[in-house]
Simulated assay, not measured.
Amino acid sequence: MVRISNNLVGILNFITFLLSIPILWAGVWLSKQGSTECEKYLDKPIIIIGVFLLLVSLAGLLGACCRISWLLWVYLLVMFVLIVILFAFTIFAFVVTNKGAGEVLSNRGYKEYRLGDYSGWLQKRVNNNKNWNKIKSCLIDGKICSTFADKYIKDTVEQFYQENLSALQSGCCKPSNDCNFTYVSPIVWNRTVTNSPNPDCNLWENDPNVLCFNCQACKAGLLDNIKSNWKKVAVVNIVFLVFLIIVYSVGCCAFRNNREDHAYQRQWK
Rank of each mutant, 00 (worst) to 15 (best):
D261W: 11
V247F: 07
V51H: 02
E163P: 02
N214A: 02
P197C: 02
F14H: 07
A149P: 01
I144Y: 10
S137H: 00
N257H: 14
L165Q: 00
I11F: 11
S196M: 06
K154C: 12
I144C: 06
K44T: 13
V193P: 07
L55F: 09
A234V: 08
S176V: 04
E39V: 09
C253P: 04
E103C: 04
R191A: 13
I85L: 09
G116S: 12
V51D: 05
V242M: 03
I83Q: 07
I226T: 08
I48S: 05
R67I: 12
S119R: 05
D200L: 00
V84A: 08
G251R: 04
V56L: 13
R256E: 12
W230N: 07
T147Y: 09
I140D: 01
L105Q: 11
L211Q: 01
V126S: 02
K269N: 14
W268C: 15
V81G: 02
S196I: 00
M79S: 13
L223I: 15
S119F: 04
T194F: 04
L139P: 01
V233L: 13
Y161G: 15
C138E: 00
G120E: 12
L139T: 02
I48C: 07
Q216G: 15
Y41L: 11
L72W: 06
Q267P: 06
P45T: 06
L222C: 13
S249P: 04
K227C: 00
S69K: 05
W230D: 04
L55N: 08
N190D: 15
G27A: 02
N129H: 13
F148C: 00
G34S: 01
R67F: 14
P175A: 04
K99R: 12
G116P: 05
S137R: 01
S196D: 03
R3D: 09
N206H: 06
N133A: 15
S57M: 01
R125G: 08
K40C: 03
W268Q: 15
N237V: 02
S20N: 01
S35C: 06
K219Y: 06
L19T: 07
P208L: 01
I48M: 05
K111F: 11
W268H: 14
P208H: 05
N195A: 13
I238A: 03
K99W: 00
V9P: 12
P186G: 10
I91R: 03
V210H: 04
F243I: 14
R125D: 09
Y75F: 07
A101M: 09
K219I: 10
S57C: 03
I48A: 09
L53C: 10
G221D: 08
G109N: 05
L62Y: 06
K111P: 02
V184L: 12
T36R: 05
L8P: 06
R108F: 10
N131G: 09
V74M: 09
Q33N: 15
F80I: 05
R259P: 05
R266L: 13
I49T: 11
W29R: 13
L61A: 08
Y75K: 06
S69I: 05
